[in-house]
């Protein structure tokens, strides 16, 4: 019986890492459910004695007396922002991916590489012109402005995801239709688009998560309370001395909730997006 010892060791290490990964989650859920009388920082690790959702209520609604705003408004802002931005950038990605795989032309690979570069740049290198341009377009500080920004800077990743997906669609199918007389739009409409559901799932889930989680663009483009996304509002809530830490943590959980739900229910697609975001093909 030599094998079990190594296996026990393996399980032990896996469990140890599991602890590392879930401790923050554990604290997040635990703290949110404690009543105000038992949330002291020094009892951070203790289990709650009874269920209480007061922290969530405060994080969601804010407190006029306490002088801080809740996250509810920003949660809705994020929702209004993320839905159109996700759909639009998926459409762009799909068309680009289609062209770049099934209608390659001289220079199309170079174009793809050039587009891809936009995925890696530090956005600090474009924010000054971005603010000035959005002002000229009169969309600075508005949710449509932020949608525009996310769609534009989402083009590289969504193009990549669709291109990698369409490569797996046999080119012969397209060539055959060309011979049958189908044109560019016809082939997309009748052959490619009906096959695209997995591609859309991956691209949209990826974009949903990364736009929801974005902080820099929200901070730069829509810092005003009327249109700020939830990450910006959370950072502000958490930086405030008067907001108790359990309310901050409850706010963190509320912010994390949508992507976590997506991850739990659509994890397969999320994982596929992760892989494609990292390695080509």
């Amino acid at each position: 019986m030599k094998i079990p010892t190594t296996r026990i060791l393996i399980y032990l290490i896996l469990v140890l890492f599991t602890v590392f990964y879930i401790i923050p989650m554990y604290i997040m859920i635990l703290t949110g459910m404690k009543s105000f009388s038992e949330v002291g920082l020094s009892t951070m690790w203790n289990l709650p004695r009874s269920l209480n959702f007061e922290s969530f209520r405060l994080a969601w609604l804010g407190s006029a007396k306490g002088g801080f705003r809740g996250l509810s408004g920003s949660f809705l802002n994020s929702l209004w922002l993320v839905i159109p931005a996700t759909i639009i950038s998926a459409i762009f990605g799909s068309l680009n991916g289609y062209v770049l795989t099934k209608w390659r032309f001289y220079g199309s690979d170079l174009i793809f590489t050039m587009i891809l570069f936009g995925m890696f740049i530090p956005y600090q290198s474009i924010i000054i012109p971005l603010v000035l341009t959005l002002q000229k377009l009169h969309v600075y500080g508005t949710i449509p402005g932020l949608i525009l920004v996310h769609v534009i800077y989402g083009i590289p990743i969504s193009t990549l995801i669709f291109r990698n997906y369409y490569i797996t669609v046999p080119t012969e199918m397209v060539e055959a239709s060309k011979i049958d007389g189908a044109n560019f739009l016809g082939i997309y409409r009748w052959i490619i688009f009906p096959l695209s559901t997995p591609g859309f799932a991956v691209a949209m889930i990826w974009q949903f998560t990364s736009i929801w989680n974005d902080f820099l663009f929200g901070l730069i483009v829509t810092p005003n309370p009327a249109s700020q996304p939830i990450t910006v509002a959370l950072n502000n809530l958490a930086g405030s001395y008067i907001v108790q830490w359990n309310v901050q943590i409850a706010g963190a959980l509320l912010t994390a909730l949508p992507p976590i739900l997506v991850y739990i229910f659509l994890g397969k697609f999320f994982l596929r997006g992760l892989m494609q975001g990292s390695l080509k093909g």
Binding site: V131, L132, L134, Q135, H138, Y140, G141, T142, L219, I220, V221, P223, N224, G239
Partner: peptide
């Protein structure tokens, strides 16, 4: 410290408080 940066970005962007 943070507030000043936020006010300034908003002013530059033409969305003053």
């Amino acid at each position: 410290t943070n507030a000043k940066a936020v006010f300034k970005t908003r002013m530059l962007g033409g969305d003053p408080p």
